[in-house]
Computed example of a mutant assay.
Amino acid sequence: MPVQPYLFFDGRCEEAIEFYRQALGAEVEMLMRYKESPDPMPPGTHAGFDNKVMHASLHIGDGSVMMSDDCMGHPDFQGFSLSLQAASEAEARQRFDALSAGGKVHMPLGKTFYSPCFGMVVDRFGVSWMIIVPAKT
């Protein structure tokens, strides 16, 4: 039974989807806008949210990340990180650099006792990522 992260963006989901497509090669598996729902918009929804993303699923590597625009509040990505496994140090560097554009590096990529290449970055949307090349066994 897989566990899939679900990220909420405050009106920037479509921008995030395009960013992850460029940075990680993410593929959009599904995208539905609020205006496509048969149900009325929830009370308290921001004006103009009808064209925002109600639900999307992105395929990244071997996994999926779900996301939407948070129509009821402001997202706060704290207390977790998404971990992205890279096949090589070159791939790790490319992914790390792409995710750090407009974001903040918390731990530069480097060798650790558990990985030949590991780093941590918060992207421009506030999502925390850990990039790791698995140690050879």
Results as ranks from 00 to 15, higher is better:
Pro2Ile: 11
Val3Phe: 07
Val3Thr: 10
Gln4Phe: 10
Pro5His: 06
Leu7Phe: 09
Phe8Lys: 08
Phe9Asp: 08
Phe9Leu: 02
Phe9Pro: 13
Phe9Val: 09
Gly11Leu: 11
Glu15Cys: 07
Ala16Ile: 12
Tyr20Val: 05
Ala23Met: 12
Ala23Leu: 08
Gly25Val: 09
Gly25Thr: 08
Ala26Thr: 12
Ala26Tyr: 10
Glu27Val: 08
Glu27Lys: 09
Met30Phe: 15
Met30Ile: 13
Met32Leu: 15
Tyr34Pro: 04
Tyr34Asp: 07
Ser37Met: 15
Pro38Cys: 08
Pro38Asp: 14
Asp39His: 09
Pro42His: 07
Pro43Asp: 10
Gly44Val: 04
Ala47Arg: 08
Ala47Glu: 13
Gly48Lys: 02
Asn51Tyr: 05
Val53Cys: 03
Val53Arg: 00
Ala56Phe: 03
Gly61Gln: 01
Asp62Phe: 00
Gly63Asn: 06
Ser64Leu: 06
Met67Asp: 03
Asp70Pro: 01
Cys71Lys: 02
Cys71Gly: 08
His74Ser: 14
Phe80Thr: 11
Ser81Val: 04
Ser83His: 13
Leu84Asp: 09
Gln85Pro: 13
Ala86Pro: 15
Glu91Leu: 03
Arg93Ile: 03
Gln94Val: 05
Phe96Cys: 09
Asp97His: 06
Gly103Met: 01
His106Asp: 14
Met107Gln: 11
Met107Cys: 03
Gly110His: 04
Phe113His: 02
Tyr114Thr: 00
Cys117Ala: 11
Phe118Trp: 07
Phe118Pro: 09
Gly119Met: 05
Met120Trp: 14
Val122Ser: 14
Phe125Gln: 05
Phe125Ile: 02
Phe125Pro: 12
Gly126Asp: 07
Val127His: 04
Val127Phe: 03
Ser128Leu: 00
Trp129Cys: 03
Trp129Ile: 01
Met130Asn: 10
Ile132Pro: 11
Val133His: 09
Val133Lys: 08
Thr137Val: 13
